[in-house]
Design a protein around this nucleic acid. Sequence first.
DNA 1: TCCCGCTCTTAAAGCGCTTTAACTTCGAGT
DNA 2: ACTCGAAGTTAAAGCGCTTTAAGAGCGGGA
Lengths: 334, 334
Amino acid sequence: MDQRPRLEDVAARVGVSTASVSLVLRGAPGPSAATRERVLEAAAELGYRPDRTASLLARRRRHLLGVMLDVRNPFHAELVEEIHVEANRIGYEVVLSTLTRDRDEDRAIETLLDFRCEAVLLLGPDASAPALGKLSGQVPVVVIGRRVDDAGVDVVRTGDDAGVGEALSHLIELGHERIAFVDGGRGVVATARRSGYRAAMRRAGLARWIRIIPGDHTEEGGSRAGRVLAAAPDRPSAVVASNDRCAVGLLDAFTRSGLAVPAEISVVGYDDSTLAGLAHIDLTTVNQDAPTQARYAVAAAVSRLDEGRVERREVVLRPRLVVRGSTAPPAISA
Amino acid sequence: MDQRPRLEDVAARVGVSTASVSLVLRGAPGPSAATRERVLEAAAELGYRPDRTASLLARRRRHLLGVMLDVRNPFHAELVEEIHVEANRIGYEVVLSTLTRDRDEDRAIETLLDFRCEAVLLLGPDASAPALGKLSGQVPVVVIGRRVDDAGVDVVRTGDDAGVGEALSHLIELGHERIAFVDGGRGVVATARRSGYRAAMRRAGLARWIRIIPGDHTEEGGSRAGRVLAAAPDRPSAVVASNDRCAVGLLDAFTRSGLAVPAEISVVGYDDSTLAGLAHIDLTTVNQDAPTQARYAVAAAVSRLDEGRVERREVVLRPRLVVRGSTAPPAISA
DNA sequence: TCCCGCTCTTAAAGCGCTTTAACTTCGAGT
DNA sequence: ACTCGAAGTTAAAGCGCTTTAAGAGCGGGA
C-alpha cells in the first residue's frame, strides 16, 4: 500500500460518487446529513488526506498565499509565524520562498508564482517601486515593512519617523538635549529614520543639537560610530541608533572606552530584536509589532481576493517604544 | 491578458503538438534541433512559464523536498539556506513548513505530505523515534541535528560528545583543570553534551573536578548558573556551557559579579550562533557546520529517491572549535 | 519494388480533485 | 391525478501538464 487512498477509494467504499465525497470533505452544502456521516467515517477509516496538488489544479481558486522572506532575518521569522497563523485561521495555506545567496528576489518571487499563489506578501523587498508595480499587474502584491509609491501595491509598515519621534520624546522627557543619531546608510528605511530624527529634533526646539554620525545597520558600523562619539569633546548625552544591531555596536564601543551606559550616555535602538531583550544588552528600543503587521498584510491580500477590492491600501502603524535599561536621565542636567 | 500562456498556446503558435513543446522545454530527447529552436523562441516571445502545480500532478516524480523547520531558529535558517542551494543545484525544489504556536510538528509534516513531497528533511524534530520511524514508512525521512535510533530514518548530525571534547581539550591545553559544565536540561541534545563532558573529563584524568551546574538552553538559565558559580568558594577556572545562549547568560552574570572573562574565568559556548561572533560577546564556541550538514541531508534524500538506496544512513560530522576571546590560560596555574 | 528501421511527431490517456449542469426522487400544492 | 420545486446526487468536463504507444516519413539494403 504505497498509494495514499484517493477520493475515488472513499467514494467506492461508501457507494457514492466522488463528487459527493468532495463536497462533504470541504463542507460544501448539498449532501445530506446521512451521507456526510458515512463519507466522513469512511474517509477516517481509510486515513484519507486530499492531494493538495490535484486540489490546487482543479480549483480555480487556490487559497494559497506566497511569502517571500529572508529566512535569516529574525524579524521576518516573527512575521512569517504570524502570517501563517492568521492565514490558516481564514482558510488559506502559505508557501514560503526564501532569499539565499544564489536566489535573488526575482527567483524567489518566480517560485511563488509557479506555485500559482493567489497573492504574494513580500517582506522588506529591495525591488524598485516600478518593478513591484509591474508585478502587481500579475498578482496582488502586499509589501511589508517599507514604503512603496505605486498605485498597484498594498503596503503595511510602521511609521519610521514616528518611531524615532517616540524615542526622542522619551529621551527629552528624561532631560536630554544633546541627542545624536547614528545613521543607517542608504536605503528607504534608513532614510525615513534619519529624516524622522531631524524633524523631531526641530519640533522639540533642539535643532542646534542635530548631529548625524555616519553608520550602517551592522554592529561594526555602530562600533565605529561609538568610537567617534566616545572620543568627541562635545559628546552628546544620548544617542539614537538606526537599528538594534547598530546600537549593540555602540554599546560595545562605549563599554570598551569606559563610558558607562546609561549613567554617562543613553542609547536607544530600533527593531526590538531578540538581541535587545538579552539581560546584558537590555536595550531601550522601538518595537514594530510584527503580529499586527502580519494580520493587516493577510487582510489586505484577502480583501483583494475575496472582496474584489481594487483601490490601493496603505496601513501605517504607530511603533511602540520599549523602555529598558539603556536609557536614564543625563548625568548633568543641561 | 489575465491568463498566463499555457503549453497549448505555445504549441499553437509554433504549429506543433503540446507533447513536443513539453519535451523541448524539459530538454527531453526526441524533438529535432529545428523544432527545438522554434519552440524555444515562441516560448520566450510568449513569456511562457510552466505551471508547477499541473506539472507536479502529471509527473509521477515531483522533485520536491519538504523541509520542516522552526523559522525562529537561526541555526535552522542557515540550514535551510544551504538546503535550498544544494537542492536547486541538483534539480529539486524545496517547500518549507514551519512550526508556529498553533502548528505543531504533526501539522507541519502533514502540510509537507499534502504537497506530495518525495522526501522530508526534519530540522531538530522533537518527535519520538517510533513516530519518526512510522513516518519513514510513508516517505523517506532525514533528520538533521539529533540522534534517532530507528532503522528507517536517515540522520545527519554532529557528534555532540566530540564537540564538547574539543572544547575541553582546548581548555586543558591552556592549563585549566577545574572545568565545570552548565547543563542544558532534558532533551536528546543536552544529554549527549552532558555525557560528552563527563567522558572527556575522565579521559583527561580530571574526573575529580567533574561538576555539572543545572541550567537550560536560555540566557536566563545561564545567568542563574553564573551567579551560582561566581559565588562558589571553590570556583572553577573555566566553564563549558551547553549552548551559546546559556553561555551568554553566564557572561552576563560574571560581568555583573565583577568576574573578569577570560582573565579570571574562561567560558566556552556551543553552536557558534551569530550572537557568539558579536564584538562584545566574542565567545569561544563549537561550530556545527550547517552547510555540510545540509549537503549530506539532501544527498541522503536524493540517494533514496534516485538511486533506490534502502539501508539506513547516519552521518556524524566532527564539530569544529572556534576560538575567540572568552578563553585564556587560568590566572593561577593549577 | 518491398520491407525494415530510424528519426521525429503526436493523439490520447491520465494525474486526483473541483464544479456545473443535469438528473432523480419525493412530498406539497392545486 | 398532475405539476412543481426543493433536496440530494452524480456524470462528465475540465485544470495544465507528462508520457506512452502508435504513426508518419524517409532513405537504404535486399
